[in-house]
Amino acid sequence: MAEVPTQYGIILAAILFSLGVAGILLRRNIFFVLLFVEVMLNAAGLAFVVAGARWGQADGQVMFIFVLATAAAEVAIGLGLLLRLHHQFKTLNVDEASDLRG
């Protein structure tokens, strides 16, 4: 197992993270935006596991479990709000659902 270099793992995490950022920039639908937030959090968790493997410590995996808990809490509230948004605005488009203006 020693043959996987750390930086390849981190690069994979960075690519997935960047794809998540791109997804959020590209999509205007709240459903997809929430999905890409999950992709980004997952990429951060992957980076922790890779870093933990580099040092041979369990800490990276423990942090991954905490990230998992966070992702679950975020998605529970996020999808709850999404259902409310759909109920109120009849759309999931972030640009259309915009009452707050200065």
Binding site: T6, I10, A13, A14, F17, G20, V21, I24, I30, V33, L34, V37, M40, L41, A43, A44, G45, A47, F48, V50, A51, G52, R54, W55, D59, G60, M63, V67, T70, E74, I77, G78, L81, L82, L85, V94, A97, L100
Partner: peptide, 25 residues
Amino acid sequence: AGIKYLVLAGVTAAFLLFGMALVYA
């Protein structure tokens, strides 16, 4: 307002975590 805060806070939480992971690595 809730959705806006949630999406932006979620994205920044991901940035924060990725930063932590890089520092840890």
